[in-house]
């Protein structure tokens, strides 16, 4: 918290944007693979039934 107080507003905004971007990109990179792994455990009927 003390470190946060030492930071300038511009640095705080940069850090927020930095983490949001990095977490977002990581999620985009792993989501298709995670979905694929979960699908591997489904039965044919579950797989063929659209989720929506």
């Amino acid at each position: 918290m003390g470190k946060l107080k030492e930071m300038r507003p511009g640095e705080i905004i940069f850090s927020i944007v930095q983490y949001v971007m990095l977490i977002g990109a990581s999620l985009v990179a792993v989501t298709p693979v995670i979905v694929c792994v979960f699908t591997a455990f489904k039965t044919d009927t579950e797989y063929q039934a659209p989720p929506r």
Partner: peptide
């Protein structure tokens, strides 16, 4: 945690 982000993004 940059190592985790790096690993996630390099994984594909």
């Amino acid at each position: 945690g940059s190592a985790i982000y790096k690993a996630c993004m390099f994984f594909p």
